[in-house]
Simulated scan of single mutants.
Amino acid sequence: MAVVKEFKAFIARGNVLDLAVAVVIGAAFGRIVTAMVDGLIMPLTGVFTGGVDLSHLYVALDGQDYESLAAAQEASAPVLAYGAFIQSVVDFLLVAFVIFLVVRAYNRMNKPEEAAPAAPSEEVLLLREIRDSLARRDSGAGNA
């Protein structure tokens, strides 16, 4: 029963709930980024590469020519689908960059307030009094 009690204490901590929420939001965010890459970025990349859809780039390892990646996969040919890899790398970089921006903004919002300067020590206060006293005496002597 001690294990059950420990597990309840573990689940009751706020960190576990925060982590669960982060995983769910992260998965949804990943789908959004994938849709953005598939629908916006890769087509623009295709324009710059002469209409080539990078996600369909592949090399058939059996040495035969296939009209498309789908045709090679239907024929059960071994393929290196490097275009899909490129697309996944773009997905990852975009997700990582957006997470970086979010964390950066969060850190700036939660920046700890700078502590007020410490009060001067007794010695410093005493030296200031002596300095001010000497300054008053010297300015009084010049007027006499």
Results as ranks from 00 to 15, higher is better:
residue 3 V to F: 15
residue 5 K to A: 13
residue 6 E to T: 11
residue 8 K to G: 04
residue 10 F to P: 01
residue 11 I to G: 00
residue 13 R to Q: 14
residue 20 A to D: 01
residue 22 A to W: 03
residue 24 V to M: 15
residue 25 I to Q: 02
residue 31 R to D: 12
residue 32 I to S: 03
residue 33 V to K: 03
residue 35 A to W: 07
residue 38 D to L: 04
residue 38 D to W: 02
residue 41 I to S: 02
residue 42 M to Q: 06
residue 44 L to G: 07
residue 45 T to W: 10
residue 49 T to I: 08
residue 49 T to R: 05
residue 49 T to P: 05
residue 53 D to E: 14
residue 54 L to F: 14
residue 55 S to V: 05
residue 56 H to C: 02
residue 56 H to E: 15
residue 62 D to K: 06
residue 65 D to Y: 12
residue 65 D to H: 15
residue 66 Y to T: 05
residue 67 E to M: 10
residue 67 E to C: 00
residue 67 E to A: 15
residue 69 L to W: 06
residue 69 L to Y: 07
residue 70 A to L: 08
residue 71 A to F: 04
residue 73 Q to D: 08
residue 75 A to Y: 07
residue 75 A to S: 09
residue 76 S to C: 00
residue 76 S to W: 01
residue 77 A to L: 09
residue 83 G to D: 05
residue 84 A to F: 01
residue 84 A to V: 11
residue 86 I to Q: 07
residue 89 V to M: 12
residue 89 V to F: 12
residue 90 V to M: 03
residue 92 F to G: 12
residue 93 L to W: 09
residue 95 V to F: 05
residue 97 F to V: 08
residue 98 V to T: 04
residue 100 F to S: 08
residue 103 V to D: 14
residue 108 R to G: 02
residue 111 K to C: 04
residue 113 E to Q: 10
residue 114 E to H: 08
residue 116 A to E: 13
residue 116 A to L: 13
residue 117 P to C: 02
residue 119 A to S: 09
residue 120 P to H: 02
residue 121 S to E: 07
residue 122 E to R: 08
residue 124 V to G: 00
residue 129 E to S: 10
residue 129 E to L: 07
residue 134 L to I: 09
residue 134 L to K: 11
residue 135 A to K: 14
residue 135 A to I: 04
residue 136 R to E: 11
residue 137 R to V: 05
residue 142 G to C: 01
